[in-house]
């Protein structure tokens, strides 16, 4: 029967089509504890993957972990199903990624915020101290009281790196400025507790601070809210958070996790994947201070001029921002 043959060949053709589609990449993303919708770090990664999907039509899979063992499990599940590349978001997944990457030497892995030295891993690190330096300068210039605040999630090296860069920027503008540094907590919930973030921000306002920079994931939503409620200024982190409270968010220390994820996927698609350490700073637009229609009234032309000058000098190497990770201290 010719008709059946026709159907058969059409089916075969269809199958070959799907095979051709399957030939493109199948990316997988594993978020850390904050989860896909933290409006900050993990969400930036999600946005990067989504941008890629919208541009190329290539779908991706993702997973939100609940415990350290799940991180390893999820990566292995992805790798086993032939997903490639697999991107882990956050330093806490470094150990898990190292194990899984060894088991699947033919799969490409990437990790954000940590260094894993394996031939099939791309480690993406950001020079947060540079971006924080610029936001520190802006904070000091915007402050009328000479007192600024910093609210971190947890007292861990990564957050001290933010705090140290911020401190240097503040002091560069106003050597006499006072900086209050507080951490939100000691458990995973430190990153997901906006109520506590708001309380700490209010206590810093009560001590005289009028600009507060947060590096605390979803906790920071509460910090920015408190700043808006009290008529003070907040500074966002990781994603551009200026839009959350227009006129009350001075700027955001944008960490281009979305760009890093997007470009990793793009490289994989074009067969240009590279492994090794990728360091993204001001020069690569990996970190930046955010300037858009929501905060343009807060940043005066003089402020902008000064910050742009510092930015150029950091890139040229004239200003050296001390990196806390180098020696574990904040002396500069």
């Amino acid at each position: 029967m010719p008709s059946r043959k026709l159907i058969g060949s059409t089916l075969l053709g269809l199958m070959m089509c799907t095979a051709a589609v399957a030939d493109t990449i199948k990316p997988g993303i594993v978020y850390d504890f904050g989860g896909r919708n933290d409006r900050s770090f993990n969400q930036a990664a999600y946005n990067g993957a989504k941008t890629f999907q919208e541009r190329t039509g290539i779908a991706f899979r993702d997973f939100e972990i609940q415990s350290a063992s799940q991180s390893e499990q999820a990566m292995r599940n992805f790798a086993r199903r032939g997903l490639n590349p697999i991107i882990a978001i956050g330093f806490s997944q470094a150990g898990a990624l190292e194990r899984v990457a060894k088991e699947f030497p033919d799969t490409d892995f990437a990790i954000i915020d940590a260094e894993v030295n394996l031939p099939n891993v791309r480690s993406v690190l950001f020079q947060e101290e540079q971006g924080s330096y610029l936001t520190g300068m802006l904070a000091a210039m915007a402050s009328k009281t000479g007192k600024v605040g910093f609210i971190g999630g947890m007292d861990i090296p990564l957050i001290r790196k933010f705090a140290c860069g911020y401190e240097q920027g503040v002091k560069a503008v106003d050597p006499k400025a006072e900086i209050f540094i507080n951490m939100t907590g000691t458990t995973g919930s430190a990153w997901t507790d906006p109520v506590k973030g708001g309380e700490i921000a209010e206590s810093q306002f009560a001590r005289g601070a009028d600009v507060v920079f947060h590096a605390a994931g979803a906790t920071g939503i509460g910090v920015l809210q408190a700043a808006a409620d009290k008529g003070k200024l907040g500074i966002g982190v990781d994603s551009n958070q200026n839009y959350l409270h227009p006129g009350s968010v001075l700027t955001s220390m944008v960490k281009a996790v979305d760009v890093a994820v997007d470009s990793a996927l793009e490289d994989a698609k074009n067969d240009q994947w590279t492994n090794g350490v990728q360091i993204l700073g001001l020069n690569e637009n990996g970190v930046a201070y955010a300037l858009d229609e929501y905060n343009e009234k807060l940043i005066t032309p003089e402020m902008k001029e000064k910050v742009e000058k510092a930015k150029a000098e950091i890139i040229s190497g004239k200003i050296k921002v001390h990196d806390y990770m180098k020696d574990g201290t904040c002396t500069y």
């Binding site: 330093f91 150990g95 007292d155 090296p157 907590g185 458990t187 990770m325």
Partner: peptide, 27 residues
């Protein structure tokens, strides 16, 4: 709560190998 505070302190300051970003002991 005291336990979590103590552990964050120890892992970030005492038990962490120098240069490692991860607040954990060596393997």
């Amino acid at each position: 709560f005291i336990a979590t505070t103590l552990m964050v302190y120890l892992l970030s300051n005492v038990l962490r190998p120098q240069g490692s970003m991860q607040p954990s002991t060596r393997t």
